[in-house]
Simulated scan of single mutants.
Amino acid sequence: MKKPAAQSLKSTALRLLATREHSRLELRRKLEARASEGDDVDAVLERMSETGLQSDQRFAESYVRSKAARLGAARIRRELEERGVAGEQVRAALDEVLEHDELSRARGVWQKKFGQVPGDAKEWARQARFLQSRGFSADIVRTLLRDPVDESAEG
């Protein structure tokens, strides 16, 4: 009876990985929620990793690509670490995928949300909080809100 249960976990893992990349920790949590007594989740995870069907590095790169236009590096890093991706893999994914610098990405997020220079201290603080909640550093936020116009865009 163990073989069909293991096969069921393997099928579940394959189905989950077919829809999107998952970190090993995410996949473990989802499989443990579906596993019955005696199922070997570790064996299924190890097999998925050995065959290349699950890769934390590939997951990290995919995650960074999907979030880079809306979030800062600090928030992406934190979210990847929460999903169980190792620090070195997080750094590698951020370095490889983020082709634009942090300031230009923050400028794009700011432009889409606000597009106007803050008129007073209250509005400045509101815009700064928004950008920081998206994971942009305080230095980037100060630089952007001090000089929001992108000189490279001017002719």
Rank of each mutant, 00 (worst) to 15 (best):
M1Y: 02
K2L: 13
P4W: 12
A5P: 00
A5W: 01
L9W: 06
L9C: 02
K10E: 14
S11V: 04
L16Q: 10
A18I: 02
A18N: 08
R20N: 14
E21P: 07
H22C: 10
H22D: 03
S23Y: 03
R24I: 08
R24M: 08
R24F: 03
L25N: 06
L25H: 10
E26I: 04
L27R: 05
R28T: 13
R29D: 11
L31A: 10
E32P: 05
A33M: 03
S36Y: 01
G38K: 03
G38W: 03
D39Q: 14
D40R: 13
D40T: 09
D42A: 15
A43K: 10
E46R: 14
E46N: 04
R47N: 09
M48F: 02
S49G: 08
E50V: 08
T51K: 11
T51V: 09
G52Q: 05
S55Q: 07
Q57N: 08
R58F: 07
R58H: 13
R58I: 14
F59S: 12
F59N: 09
A60L: 12
E61K: 15
S62E: 11
V64D: 13
R65A: 15
S66Y: 01
K67Q: 15
A69C: 02
A69L: 10
R70E: 15
L71P: 02
A74Q: 15
R75Y: 03
R78Y: 01
R78C: 00
E79A: 11
E81S: 15
E82M: 11
E82H: 09
G84N: 06
G84S: 06
V85A: 07
G87D: 10
G87S: 15
G87F: 03
R91Y: 01
A92R: 13
A93M: 11
L94P: 03
L98Q: 13
L98V: 13
H100G: 10
S104D: 10
S104F: 02
R105D: 08
A106I: 03
A106Q: 03
A106C: 02
G108D: 13
V109H: 01
W110G: 02
Q111L: 15
K113V: 12
K113P: 00
K113F: 05
G115T: 13
Q116D: 07
P118N: 00
P118V: 00
G119R: 15
E123W: 01
W124E: 07
A125E: 11
R126T: 12
Q127A: 05
Q127G: 05
R129T: 11
Q132P: 02
Q132L: 09
S133P: 00
R134T: 03
D139R: 11
V141Y: 05
T143Y: 00
T143R: 11
L145C: 07
L145E: 08
P148C: 11
D150I: 07
D150P: 05
E151L: 15
A153S: 11
A153Q: 15
E154M: 13
G155C: 03
G155S: 06
